[in-house]
């Protein structure tokens, strides 16, 4: 709906860059800060209630969206018939806005994370603790990356409407620096770290896949069947052999013994239901915990 609907100006949605919009933004922000300040004066027993009401209101949105009657076959540019439909329309319109809220709030909190990182490393540098020189290195690379990253973004976003900088021939020193740090170093390190998993798979399989107990034996057996089915050459020899057998005996039943068929059978008949059983439990666990958080039943921990 959001994508189809034409922009409609209302009290809430206003012309970009208009003074009214800016006034409203600033007033909203200041009011928000005011409420925040008021909270600092809240008595201890009110705290739990404040946190609970924020949590409850947020959860209520999706619960309403779930249980409220849906306005059937709504067409863009029409008015609701009654109040119930009015709420349904409102809920429908609000979904794309609410969907972003959690991500935006997490993004605001990133500052806290970075502060933690900086505290750990400044302390190390100040105390000249072991490895403090590496902490300096970390700080320097952080600052360099931020510098190159933002200048590059500003140049590409605002100073280069024709997209010239997309081509390497037009690059300035900032683009080279950003590319070297991001593409040359950072991304390659990510790939290196990711690929290290292969080494660990090897050593973990060597150690754990032993015929020690029934559990480790079945674990090994089903993993081996799957791995053998991944080896194209083996699959090819096996399949050709079975095809020849089928051609000789005219018994298509033998087709079922192709390694890919066997692996497929293990997956669909044993893997799918066992994983599904876990998923059912996990899904219920998430619902139950969601309910406890939403209704403020969890003592301590997150709820106030």
């Amino acid at each position: 709906m959001e994508l189809l609907a034409q922009a409609r100006l209302t009290f809430f949605g206003m012309t970009p860059n208009s003074p009214e919009l800016w006034v409203k933004i600033i007033v909203t922000f200041i009011l928000g800060l005011g409420v925040m300040f008021a909270f600092t004066k809240a008595p201890i027993r009110a705290r739990r209630m404040i946190v609970f009401s924020f949590t409850f209101a947020s959860g209520l949105f999706y619960i309403l969206l779930w249980l409220w009657p849906v306005a059937v076959a709504r067409e863009p540019g029409t008015l609701p018939n009654n109040a119930v439909e009015g709420v349904a329309f409102w809920l429908d319109d609000a979904v794309p806005r609410i969907a972003d809220v959690a991500q935006i709030l997490t993004a605001f909190l990133l500052g806290l994370g970075i502060m933690s990182l900086l505290t750990v490393h400044t302390q190390r540098i100040r105390r000249k603790a072991q490895d403090w020189k590496y902490s300096v290195l970390l700080m320097v690379s952080l600052v360099t990356m931020v510098g190159f990253g933002y200048v590059d973004w500003i140049q590409k976003k605002f100073q280069d409407p024709q997209g010239k900088l997309l081509e390497m021939a037009n690059w300035g020193p900032v683009q080279y620096g950003q590319d070297l740090l991001f593409d040359g170093a950072y991304q390659q390190m990510e790939a290196a770290m990711f690929s290290m998993i292969a080494f660990f798979i090897l050593s973990a399989a060597y150690r754990a896949f032993r015929v020690r107990s029934v559990e480790s034996t079945v674990l090994m057996a089903s993993a081996l069947i799957l791995m053998l089915s991944l080896m194209g050459a083996l699959d090819f020899i096996w399949t050709t052999g079975i095809n020849n057998l089928v051609a000789q005996t005219h018994n298509p039943f033998l087709d079922n013994f192709k390694i890919s068929e066997v692996a497929g059978w293990v997956k669909s008949t044993l893997q799918t239901p066992s994983i599904r059983a876990i998923e059912f439990g996990v899904g219920l666990g998430a619902v139950a915990m969601g309910l406890r958080i939403w209704l403020g039943l969890e003592r301590g921990g997150v709820s106030a």
Binding site: F200, I201, A204, A205, R207, A208, F209, L219, A223, I275, A277, I278, E279, G281, V282, L284, G285, A286, A288, M289
Partner: peptide
């Protein structure tokens, strides 16, 4: 982990593993 895809790796490498729902319990 509630992510079933990662549980086999934990089973192979760790001493004790909480499978699926045991985590929520």
């Amino acid at each position: 982990s509630t992510k079933t895809a990662q549980t086999p790796f934990f089973i192979a490498a760790c001493d004790y593993v909480l499978i699926g729902d045991e985590y929520y319990a």
